[in-house]
Design a protein around this nucleic acid. Structure first.
Lengths: 150, 150
DNA sequence: ATTTAAATAGTAATTATTACTATTTAGGAA
DNA sequence: TTCCTAAATAGTAATAATTACTATTTAAAT
């Protein structure tokens, strides 16, 4: 079971990740990451922006958006939701997952093999009345992998 | 294993669902559902709108949006992505799922119990290079359930 | 056939997100 | 340390998906 590192250790981890990927360590990146890292409430951009602004009055919204995207690229943070640029719909009620390409936003169905099933976590219904479970597998699709090679 | 019904059967199912919930059966609802149901490519609003327009030149975008929301309410279709109104971020790398309330959009962490794990479907990596897996449990949270009771 | 609330068409408004450009700065090299 | 340069940022403007609004239409109950 992964244990959560301290905030300091995680910032160190971020700096390492920046170096590895040749990205600069800027005070904005540190501050924005820090805000997400120390929050337990899955903050949105506005919340992060407001919090960072207290310490860095000149920070711009654009920077917050760009930085969050960078931090995601660095695997330091994740989106709760994919936030596909457009809503996409599915009428297929057979249990299946989705492979979502983070580059082209294409969606592929992953139908489960015989015997496979989605197991609801034990304490899922602590939080409310469950309607459905949605499994998204994120990655880069074969099309985009091929394109990137050229 | 659920088998997929025929288009006619599914439209019948939609009519039933409308009756049950006291919603009207309108040609727009049928047409919009039909488009989603017969597509295998997780269409977006624009695609659905364009297709429906061919048969119903006067249909409005607003109707498509509203109808898709209704069909979702009726459990006849699903969103590939939750499309939370704002992007939300998480820096917690410990494996966990999210309970997302479809009413207030609140997000709750569901940490897995000892021994529980997410099993990747066997043929998930057919489609590309997997980066991560994101499990969303959708429902109505306890807060909203309580509010609705009053 | 009549009635009425629900649903729709057409359009306007909103809002999260992205793009753009001049300026600043991190971090390597001299 | 100082200089240099591409990367990153601030401030603002633009975009685009989605939602809201109002007059009109219509499903379906009476």
């Amino acid at each position: 079971m992964n244990k959560q590192l301290s905030l300091e250790e995680r910032i160190e981890e971020l700096k390492q990740a920046c170096h590895t990927k040749g990205m600069r360590v800027t005070p904005q990146r540190i501050a924005i990451f820090e805000e997400v890292a120390k929050s337990c409430s899955h903050p949105d951009v506005e919340t992060i922006y407001d919090a960072v602004k207290d310490k860095m009055p000149n920070v711009s919204v654009d920077t917050v958006y760009r930085t969050l995207a960078s931090l995601e690229e660095l695997d330091m943070i994740f989106r709760v939701d994919n936030q596909l640029p457009k809503a996409r719909f599915d009428a297929d009620k057979r249990p299946h997952h989705h492979f979502i390409c983070t580059e082209c936003n294409e969606v592929y169905d992953i139908f489960l093999e015989q015997g496979e099933k989605v197991d609801l976590p034990q304490n899922a219904n602590k939080y409310g009345k469950i309607k459905d479970i949605n499994v998204q597998i994120r990655g880069i699709c074969n099309n985009c992998l091929a394109k990137n090679k050229k």
